[in-house]
């Protein structure tokens, strides 16, 4: 683990320096990255310009959902977002170069093409989150306050695990990278809205099959004093760390299996 972090820092540092050689372009990408996610939120603002509530949720409540998943996803995307481009490395054989180095492969691939501009998404998520907290009328208890940072961290870990899982499949199918987007970008979009507007089958899938609901829905609904979806007990709001750990374990196993397969087939 320490070795992985060290490798990640080194490689990411090199990429940051590389980006800085094109300063004008870098400034532009940071700005646009921020705007991209900002416009993403403008859509919700536009919606609320037309309606007072969505699925029975007020603007502040939707903003809380948005801020939580946005920040978590931003962190995961910043640190692990490069994994979705690993297919190219597998296809053109440059992954072999990574395998010849005395450093953990996952850290090398995750830090590959590290883009600081993706921090724009984290910043935007945090801003919406703060805005939501200002607007919200919630009876805060110490437990609810502590639940917030825990949710952000666990959410980021769950998204990161999904990204690693998705990257693992690239060892077998390099062209299927887009499927991961359904769960990462798609999951992030889904979680911005209240579970009440979706079909119950979809909500159950997100709770029990791909447990993205633990990124923000369950803790946020607890904070808002609303019932948990899909027949989950209220205590499930505190299960995010456990779910995150399970996701990491599954992703780790898939990653190992992926490397093993790559090393026996070489494709």
């Amino acid at each position: 683990m320490a070795d992985s972090l060290r490798t990640y820092r080194m490689v990411a540092g090199m990429w940051i320096r590389s980006t800085m050689t094109y300063r004008a372009s870098f400034a532009l990408t940071v700005f646009t990255s921020f705007c991209v996610t900002f416009f993403d939120f403008v859509v919700i603002l536009l919606m609320f310009g037309q309606v007072r509530g969505l699925g029975g949720f007020s603007f502040a409540e939707v903003a809380l959902l948005y801020g939580l998943t946005g920040t978590s996803f931003g962190i995961a995307d910043l640190t692990m977002g490069s994994l979705q481009r690993m297919g190219k490395r597998v296809r053109d054989g440059s992954l072999d170069t990574f395998l010849m180095r005395p450093a953990p492969l996952l850290a090398q691939v995750a830090a590959d093409k590290f883009a600081l501009r993706r921090f724009g998404r984290v910043a935007q998520g945090l801003m919406v989150l703060v805005w939501a907290l200002v607007l919200l009328d919630v009876a805060w208890t110490p437990v609810k306050v502590l639940l917030l940072p825990m949710t952000v961290v666990c959410g980021a870990v769950i998204f990161a695990a999904v990204m690693v899982l998705g990257a693992s499949t690239l060892f077998w199918m390099q062209d299927a990278a887009e499927v991961t987007n359904s769960f990462t970008y798609g999951g992030n979009t889904l979680l911005q809205y209240p579970p009440t507007i979706f079909a119950q089958e979809l909500v159950r899938g997100v709770v029990y099959v791909v447990p993205l609901a633990f990124v923000n829905w369950l803790p946020a609904l607890h904070i808002l004093g609303r019932p948990a979806p899909a027949g989950m007990p209220d205590a499930a709001a505190f299960a995010s760390p456990l779910v995150a750990a399970v996701c990491c374990a599954v992703a780790g196993l898939a990653w190992r299996a992926g490397i093993r397969s790559y090393r026996s087939t070489g494709s």
Binding site: M10, M14, R17, S18, T97, R101, P102
Partner: peptide, 26 residues
């Protein structure tokens, strides 16, 4: 390992930066 058709050096950075990375990675 040296591949004639594939460089392991960092395209946009001065040559010595690549060496510094090797220094730390190895």
């Amino acid at each position: 390992v040296v591949f004639g058709q594939r460089t392991t050096l960092w395209w946009d950075l001065p040559l010595k930066d690549s060496y510094r990375l090797m220094h730390r990675m190895y």
